[in-house]
C-alpha cells in the first residue's frame, strides 16, 4: 500500500468555473455554489483518490488559483512546484480557450524542467446553445500539448470527477514506472 501526494494546479481564465469544478469534485457532486464569488488568491483543497484495482491512493493537493489577470502574478508565488495540471476553459468562451496557451507557458516556468502530466477541461457543457468551442478543436489542441481532454458541467455535476481521477491515475502509473526504473539501476 502506498499513499502518493501530488500538487495539482488548477488554472484558466477567470469565471470559467475552476472553483465550481473543484468544489463539485471535493463534495462528490453535492455542492454547486450558485452565486459567483471570484477567487482572489489561491485556495487549497485536499482530497484522497483511491486507485482502482490496487490498495494505493493519491492525495491530491488541489491548488485552485485565481484566473483574473491582475491577480495572477501574486498567485503564482503560491503555486510551488506542481506535480499535475488541470487547465480549465469555458466552452462558451472562445477567448478562454485561446488563452490556454498562455496558461501553459506560465505553468511551464514553475516546473523546473520536470514533465507535468495534465488534463484540459472544457467546462459548462450544459450551455450547449451557447457553445463556441467545438469538441474536436479542443481535443486536437489538447493532444498537441500532451493533455487529456475532458468536458464537464459543474452545474449539472456531470463528469467532474473524471479529470481528477485520471490525473491521480496518471501520477500513480508514473510512480510505478519510476520505482521499477530505480529497482533496476546500476551502481554509481
Amino acid at each position: 500500500m502506498v499513499k502518493l501526494r501530488a500538487r495539482c494546479l488548477v488554472v484558466g481564465d477567470a469565471a470559467v468555473g475552476k472553483s465550481a469544478l473543484c468544489h463539485t469534485f471535493y463534495s462528490d457532486g453535492t455542492l454547486f455554489q450558485k452565486n459567483y464569488s471570484m477567487t482572489t488568491g489561491v485556495e487549497l483543497i485536499m482530497k484522497c483518490v483511491n486507485i482502482p484495482e490496487s490498495s494505493d491512493s493519491v492525495e491530491l493537493y488541489i491548488i485552485d488559483s485565481a484566473g483574473k489577470e491582475t491577480l495572477v502574478e501574486t498567485c503564482e508565488k503560491m503555486w510551488g512546484q506542481p506535480s499535475l495540471l488541470c487547465l480549465v476553459f469555458d466552452l462558451t468562451s472562445q477567448q478562454s480557450f485561446a488563452n490556454c496557451s498562455c496558461w501553459m507557458e506560465r505553468m511551464a516556468a514553475h516546473c523546473k524542467g520536470l514533465q507535468i502530466q495534465g488534463v484540459l477541461v472544457g467546462n459548462k457543457s450544459d450551455l450547449s446553445a451557447r457553445r463556441e468551442v467545438q469538441e474536436s478543436v479542443a481535443k486536437e489542441w489538447a493532444q498537441s500539448q500532451g493533455l487529456e481532454y475532458h468536458e464537464t458541467s459543474a452545474k449539472e455535476m456531470e463528469n467532474c470527477d473524471a479529470p481528477f481521477r485520471r490525473l491521480a491515475q496518471a501520477f500513480h502509473s508514473l510512480y510505478q514506472q519510476r520505482r521499477d526504473t530505480i529497482q533496476n539501476l546500476g551502481p554509481a
Partner: peptide, 9 residues
C-alpha cells in the same frame, strides 16, 4: 535497497 519519496517536495 532504497527509500523512495512518494510525491512533492
Amino acid at each position: 535497497t532504497f527509500w523512495i519519496s512518494t510525491g512533492m517536495f
